[in-house]
């Protein structure tokens, strides 16, 4: 077997092996790239409302129960907190209710995980650490091998001596251009 045949086999099999992870990194990459304009991990649904004639008195368990009943929020109360004398926060599972005790205005903030995307981001941003760090390193190494082996799949006018060479050169110039522009 000559080296070019071996190179093609390595490129093909590594390509298959890396497909799943590459898709995870690609999708998550786009998701976290725009973190300034959206939340890639959570869906946060805000619902505003007003409670008429909210009873006065201390922000105790009775008032909490009354508020939840009025806004028809369900779930076990995990805790409450008053960031200031006029505001009460009620923490339910997956829902935080903020009430203005003066005006009766309410804000329910319901948080759910973005299905699949949160898990992809978890892996992409190496939150598991431990063994995953080494596995991700191995994957990065495989990507390097894929890139290098890909250069030598074809020979002739579509290989490195022709079209392949020009496109590879252009691919190297793109990051250099942005470095010149922004660095």
């Amino acid at each position: 077997m000559n080296w070019r045949r071996l190179n093609t086999i390595i490129h093909r099999d590594l390509g298959y092996l890396c497909f799943g992870l590459t898709m995870i990194y690609a999708i998550s990459g786009i998701a976290v790239n725009h973190i300034h304009s959206w939340n890639p991990n959570y869906l946060i649904n805000q619902e505003r409302g007003t409670i008429d004639n909210l009873p006065g008195g201390p922000a105790d368990a009775a008032l909490t129960t009354e508020i939840l009943k009025r806004i028809e929020a369900t779930g076990e109360v995990k805790n409450t907190f008053q960031p200031d004398p006029n505001t009460l926060q009620i923490f339910l599972e997956g829902n935080t209710v903020t009430v203005n005790l003066n005006t009766g205005e309410t804000l329910q903030e319901k948080v759910t995980n973005r299905p699949l995307l949160r898990q992809m981001n978890y892996l992409h941003l190496n939150h598991p650490k431990k063994l995953w760090t080494w596995f991700a390193d191995l994957y990065a190494l495989c990507l390097g091998v894929l890139a290098c082996s890909g250069l030598f799949i074809l020979k002739g006018k579509n290989g490195m001596k022709g079209r392949g060479g020009w496109l590879t050169g252009a691919g190297l110039l793109i990051p250099l251009f942005f470095l010149w522009l922004y660095f």
Partner: peptide
């Protein structure tokens, strides 16, 4: 009452989940 204190971590080193709200 009415006071809180911020706990800051280096981005990516520790990730506090949103589900922590309301927990001790």
């Amino acid at each position: 009452p009415f006071e809180k204190f911020q706990v800051k971590v280096t981005d990516g080193v520790i990730i506090f989940p949103m589900s922590a709200r309301g927990h001790a």
